[in-house]
Design a binder for these strands. Structure first.
Lengths: 132, 132
DNA sequence: ATATTTGCAAAATTTTTGCTGGTCA
DNA sequence: TGACCAGCAAAAATTTTGCAAATAT
């Protein structure tokens, strides 16, 4: 059975901060935000709580294409585009591609439990500023 | 214009080691393999060369779903399945999903230059050993 | 009451970098 | 010959962990 867990002030604050932004922040960014409200919180606590929240399925850890993780308050699988110009990560509206899972099972014979799809390119906003 | 680059003994050996395996090894694994042949090579050199080879488009760096990178001697985009049981990474045969790129451009309005698709699950071999 | 969590600091892990001398083309 | 590269070792960057005190339920 699942381990008990408490909703401490720290954990709640971390979750609130993550839910209050549309960006996909790093642990360090979250740490700095949270410190505004709770100056003595430690970075270790932030990491531990992000880990717990991830285990409970309340958030996602994104560690794609860089040496550090970003976190996402939306635990449902969805896809992202990382802008190579401004480095921001955007949620995409395109639907989950369920047929891919079937395809991998049929063609490659593995049992698929999960998948991640990440795009890289120039975001809508940076595109406007591009000279042709 | 592009920077010149030399095929040093070290760089060649690193590339050969990477090309000789179907696994998707870490820098440290490559380092240890290469040391068998060239005991004085340094880990820094391995990292530097993997970086150069990646820049030249000869290999891929895979940094998805873990805290460290793996490397792939096949520089063409292709998809992987990471087995959550044996931790191995498998190349998949399913074709590149070009329509996804168009979908992201049409639905989300970003300019897509590249994409990565990673699957997680139980590989063909581990599946056999599973009890039902 | 007590299992869980915190803050702190130290350590672990993975990767990068400065420097000086060596080497490929 | 001269830009590029190697080895070494130290540092950087990110994340994890041990411990004693505090806290949520």
């Amino acid at each position: 059975m699942e381990k008990a867990s408490r909703m401490t002030k720290q954990r709640k604050l971390i979750l609130d901060v993550l839910r209050s932004t549309k960006s996909h922040p790093t642990a360090d960014w979250i740490y700095n935000q949270v410190r505004g409200e709770m100056p003595n919180i430690s970075l270790g606590t932030v990491y531990r709580n992000l880990g717990v929240l991830k285990e409970k399925g309340e958030i996602l850890e994104l560690n794609y294409g860089s040496s550090f993780s970003r976190y996402d308050c939306n635990p449902e699988n969805h896809y992202h585009l990382t802008c190579t110009k401004c480095e921001r990560v955007f949620d995409l509206k395109i639907p989950i591609q369920k047929q891919l899972v079937k395809e991998v099972m049929d063609i490659d014979g593995h049992k698929v439990l999960d998948h991640r799809l990440e795009f890289y390119g120039i975001c809508k906003e940076c595109k406007k500023q591009e000279v042709n």
